[in-house]
């Protein structure tokens, strides 16, 4: 396959970026998208040029480190895939592929296609946990949890924190990310004690980090690799309103 790449190059957070064009002639269908970029970087290394920086780690769709907006879609053309699971068989010979970083104020570009997602850490720090200190826990089976509730909590907990929801959102809202954690913990009996403080702190942190507000376009749930549901956002809003009522 012959592929033309238009890749965003940017030296640092403050510098101006632009698209740069590359040509690859020996791309194979079986290659993963990132292996195609490896190939590009090898060809640059041989020429002594600076490689294209992109984030990746586990390459099996679970760590959430890979990002990229490919042809205008976060994580590429297949819905609910991560970039690392995207393969070149999703493209045709002669295609031109635009590769850009995840874009949002809260995700400043570090270099080329790498972005800084520390804001997600900050949101979790605000309250995305259950404060059970090591060694304090009661016997696990003391609190039975209905199978369906546990499974539903899992659906939310499955979020890999990649940030595709933010990247694809026209408002750069992290509502889906925040709501996944809120819902995960609110659904479980263990998460009840800190329920009120958690939603207040996390929403405040979300806003302070500069994310926009959710307008329910639903684009985030369409790209989410773990298929976190829009209902989680409704659940988050419910938790917020519940906390509001409890405060007064």
């Amino acid at each position: 396959m012959k592929i033309t790449l238009k890749i965003w190059r940017q030296d640092g957070p403050k510098s101006k970026g632009k698209l740069e064009t590359f040509q690859l002639n020996e791309v194979e269908q079986d290659m993963s998208f990132l292996e195609m970029l490896d190939m590009l970087n090898e060809s640059l290394a041989v020429k002594g040029e600076r490689s294209v920086e992109f984030d990746h780690d586990c390459r099996e769709g679970i760590c959430g480190q890979c990002s990229l907006v490919i042809n205008g879609q976060a994580h590429g053309p297949e819905s609910h895939y991560t970039t690392c699971q995207t393969h070149m068989r999703s493209f045709k010979d002669g295609d031109t592929i635009f590769i850009e970083p995840f874009r949002a104020k809260a995700f400043p570009v570090i270099r080329d296609l790498k972005v800084n997602r520390d804001s997600f850490d900050t949101i979790i720090q605000a309250g995305g946990y259950i404060s059970a200190l090591t060694g304090n826990a009661p016997e696990a089976n003391n609190i039975p949890i209905h199978h369906n509730i546990s499974e539903s909590a899992f659906d939310s907990a499955a979020c890999i924190g990649c940030g595709a929801c933010v990247a694809t959102c026209k408002n750069s809202s992290a509502a889906l990310f925040v709501s996944a954690k809120i819902s995960h913990l609110a659904k479980l009996p263990q998460g009840q004690v800190e329920r009120k403080e958690r939603i207040e702190y996390m929403i405040t942190a979300h806003d302070e980090e500069g994310f926009g507000s959710c307008t329910h376009t639903g684009a985030c749930a369409m790209v989410c690799p773990q298929e976190v549901q829009l209902l989680d956002i409704a659940r988050m809003n419910y938790e917020f309103n519940r906390a509001l009522c409890k405060a007064t």
């Binding site: 238009k6 965003w8 970026g17 698209l19 907006v69 042809n71 205008g72 879609q73 819905s79 635009f98 850009e100 874009r103 949002a104 104020k105 809260a106 995700f107 400043p108 570009v109 694809t168 026209k170 408002n171 750069s172 809202s173 500069g210 994310f211 926009g212 507000s213 307008t215 329910h216 376009t217 639903g218 684009a219 369409m222 790209v223």
Partner: peptide
């Protein structure tokens, strides 16, 4: 107010954008 905040939240514009993941009227 929300729109202004959301504009601010957005970083640089995408050069290429594919909007097939949401309805035009939602956006």
């Amino acid at each position: 107010l929300i729109t202004v905040k959301n504009w601010k939240a957005h970083g640089e514009k995408y050069v290429k954008i594919d909007n097939s993941t949401s309805n035009w009227y939602s956006r």
